[in-house]
Design a protein around this nucleic acid. Structure first.
Lengths: 347, 347
DNA sequence: AGTTAGCACTCGCCTTAAAGGAGTGCTAAC
DNA sequence: GTTAGCACTCCTTTAAGGCGAGTGCTAACT
């Protein structure tokens, strides 16, 4: 792909992203000075089409970038815009001044992203995964129902209700709680080793049933790394995009957004740790988002990936603006999350 | 309004609810045997229009029920359909077999309603309002940040993060927790009296600051009776309604559904305790739901209203089917919620 | 060989006109 | 009070024509 072809492709994508209209050779010759006539551009466009980077909705319409075209753009052509300082400020100050738990901070970031990007924002929360246990206790409800309450240092509180065998009383629960507390406090849920578990089991062999149940709950949370809750914001934004003037499309998309399972899968495809993942149209696993792209990034706590931030918009997304913004958001969130659990010191 | 006019109005509403098409005199004469000709019906329709019960989108279109018309129908004309036994069974068994906390049960009911009605379902959860305190504790996170954890007998767990003054340590928090626990356990949050509070304050005067903060959190929850979380399900259903083929309308409605505050207000207008509230179009306070109706009912715990169930659909809603269904759902939910906190005994 | 002007051609979209049809209101007769 | 008949209204559908954006090709130019 020679230099001029690249410039033509870049122009087509920029124009299409801006206008949502198929772009013709004349437009490019006029608006983007490539120093050649529209006829030359037509020739280049014919080539680009043959190479699969652009498409024609129908004869005598302009060209539209293909998935391959967008991909090439994102990987090689795109000049990342730097995040405007005022946005950086908004994000930083927003995160700085949010009091509350880890969940609140993350949720807030999602809302902010929706507002700042004008697309839909998705957030996958960490389960019990990301934090050290500060408090763990079995609280009797109406026996035989009890709830296992776990408080993490980030302020996350999770609980899980289950039933204990007949004959277990409040005192028994207090004993178990004390042992659990002694053994597990300070550990991350992920870090609970089999050895600790059996140690506990030994110490409390009388209560094997209850214990197994409780540990099972913890293990559940640990196993399903992506089991966290999903928040969705600004899906309303997406309706302002011209490609969603068609109700049929809105319906399929909204149908998707209601299925948490599918969303989780989509988010789970985000590359671990490093940078930002961009997936365009059919590069995503669900066919319901054919016309959409997702830009996502993971955030971390204690050196471990714990959740995912994402933005969902039309394939015609402003990648050059969104990618750096997501990167900044995920990095900022990571910083402030870790401050939350480590006092002032950055992680 | 004479008997025949009522029958004509009834026929118009039934037909319009079924077809979403303006209904003409001929249709009524043909499909609903009133024993008179279409000309007579035309005369009746002219009268009904003058009386404000029906409207004409334009000359030479059929008639459509007005808000007033629907209102008259719901209040006087409607024959409630009885809830089909299989639906009753689905609801009962669903609620019976849902293990977990109060929140899970309520949320599940919302999902069920969305599925069974084919409209959007809204649920306003109780805050800390509806249940007795089983456990209350200040858990230190990374000092000075602590979280107040409250567990209710329904299994609801709420927490709130705040900061304590310098110099307060884990032991201090343990002392405070012990007193809070001793004084408040077994009370409902709503039932916490000023007297108890000052009693606690007296006992722990050293920790006045921390205590005030903690009690403030509790009071907050108590004050905002409807402050609970809102769940939304099946908004996707609403897009299948013919009146929402128009994207503009979808946008305004979705815009509404994203604003929790507005939703809370809408739900808060539900009549307390008794039966089912139906609000049609402009009878609701928000102008964004002009084309919609809401059928809502409160559910109770411990003899007190704690939350609201609602269904949101087009004004052209199948009231005769939905009203009894909502009533049944709210009643069932009340029963099972109370079982949850009272052992087997019904409330 | 690459570039460009010119031009015929394609094809979606918009406007306009005409036909069709559902439904009404009115009148006159029963 | 009811009904048949009929003129009238007005929305909706269909068809046709013109417009315009854009293309691909050819031939000439550098």
């Amino acid at each position: 792909m020679d230099d001029r072809k690249q410039r033509v492709l870049l122009a087509i994508i920029q124009d299409y992203v801006a206008t949502a209209e198929p772009v013709g050779s004349r437009t490019i010759a006029r608006k983007y000075q490539l120093g050649v006539s529209s006829a030359t551009i037509r020739n280049e466009m014919a080539d680009l089409e043959e190479m699969g980077y652009i498409e024609q909705p129908h004869t005598s319409a302009g060209r539209v970038p293909s998935i391959t075209g967008y991909r090439y753009y994102v990987d090689s052509l795109m000049k990342r815009e730097s995040v405007p300082p005022d946005l950086e400020k908004i994000i930083r100050e927003g995160l700085e001044h949010t009091v509350g738990d880890v969940g609140g901070l993350i949720h807030y970031t999602g809302q902010l992203l929706a507002k700042l990007t004008s697309y839909a924002a998705l957030v996958m929360m960490p389960g019990l995964f990301g934090g050290r246990i500060r408090h763990i206790q079995l609280v009797p409800l109406v026996l035989p129902r009890v709830t296992l309450v776990v408080v993490l240092d980030g302020g996350t509180v999770q609980n899980h209700v289950f039933e204990v065998p007949e004959g277990i009383g409040e005192e028994d629960l207090a004993v178990i709680s004390a042992v659990l507390s002694a053994k597990l406090k300070g550990m991350t849920v992920a870090g609970i080793r089999r050895t600790v578990m059996s140690e506990i089991n030994l110490e409390l062999s009388r209560y094997r049933d209850v214990l197994n149940k409780a540990l099972e709950v913890l293990a559940d949370e640990r196993g399903s790394a992506g089991a966290g809750k999903i928040y969705l914001d600004g899906m309303f934004n997406i309706l302002n995009q011209p490609e969603f003037q068609n109700v049929e499309r809105v319906r399929t998309l909204l149908g998707l957004l209601e299925q948490e399972e599918v969303l989780k899968e989509l988010l789970a495809e985000t590359a671990p740790s490093a940078g930002v993942t961009v997936r365009i149209g059919s590069e995503m696993s669900s066919r319901y988002v054919a016309e959409c792209s997702m830009v996502s990034a993971v955030f971390r706590m204690g050196g471990r990936d714990v959740g995912t931030l994402a933005v969902l918009g039309p394939t015609r997304m402003e990648y050059a603006r969104i990618v750096p913004l997501m990167e900044f958001a995920a990095r900022s969130l990571t910083v402030y999350l870790n401050r939350l659990v480590a006092g002032r010191g950055d992680w």
